[in-house]
Simulated assay, not measured.
Amino acid sequence: MRTIVELVGGPDQAERVREVAELLVALREHGGDDVERVLRAAPRWLAGAFAPERTVEEDEAWLVRWRAAPDRLAFERASGWTASGWVHWFSPENEFWSVGDVRVDEGGHRVVVDLEHDDDPVPFEALRWLALTGGLRVGDEVRVR
């Protein structure tokens, strides 16, 4: 199955759209396997947006709170993404989806991302966070079977 997701920038955000597209291509090509490499290649605005990494104990406590949260998505958003947690979604260990084709529209104001996946709906909160952190918005989401 494939889901096509659009990340849309404003009229003056062509450079940001290009940065997001280039990052997604790099993550696809390198599998997101090395957090430090991703951070070195990431735009400064992204590298500074991550929450501090957690210890094993802090991760376990976070998981307990997440499981008990009435709205898990809201809890995740409020907690922030650590770099390692976010990069995981672009790594081969992510069994939910993988990044397929990434393209920028002719006007340079929209990144179109194909996510390949088996299950529906596809949990692409990491991609949504990238868009919002970059000042873009998530546009159309189309499932292709």
Rank of each mutant, 00 (worst) to 15 (best):
W81D: 14
R145F: 12
E22P: 00
V142T: 13
V99T: 07
E116F: 04
V144H: 08
V87E: 07
L132P: 11
L63Y: 13
W62D: 08
F75L: 03
E125F: 06
L132T: 15
L46Q: 05
I4N: 04
E36R: 13
E19S: 01
R77L: 09
D118L: 14
L46V: 11
D71G: 01
D120H: 13
R54H: 10
D59C: 09
W97H: 07
F96W: 14
A83M: 02
G32H: 03
F96C: 01
T133S: 12
G85F: 01
E76A: 08
W129D: 15
A49Q: 07
T55Q: 05
D114P: 00
V35S: 14
R16Y: 08
D71V: 04
E58I: 03
G48R: 10
F75T: 01
R67K: 12
D119Q: 13
G9M: 01
V111E: 15
P52N: 10
G48F: 02
V56Q: 11
R44D: 15
V99C: 07
G135D: 14
L132Q: 15
R77G: 03
E95F: 15
F50T: 05
V17Y: 02
D114V: 08
G80S: 07
L130V: 12
A69P: 06
G139R: 00
V122K: 01
F124A: 05
W97N: 00
A78H: 02
H109M: 08
E58P: 01
E57V: 07
D33S: 14
V8G: 13
P92H: 13
R2V: 04
V17C: 10
A42L: 07
L63H: 11
T82C: 05
W62I: 04
E29A: 11
H117D: 01
L27S: 09
H109R: 12
V17L: 06
R72D: 01
A49D: 10
P52Q: 06
W89P: 02
V144C: 08
L136M: 10
R145E: 13
W129A: 15
E15I: 00
L73F: 08
R103N: 12
V111M: 09
A47Q: 08
W66D: 00
V104N: 10
V56S: 12
R103I: 06
L136C: 11
R37T: 12
G85V: 01
F96E: 09
A42Q: 06
G107Y: 00
D71I: 03
A74W: 06
F50K: 04
L136E: 11
T133R: 04
G100T: 02
A21R: 00
G108D: 12
W129F: 13
W62M: 06
R110G: 15
P52R: 08
V102G: 14
L130Y: 06
V35H: 11
R72V: 02
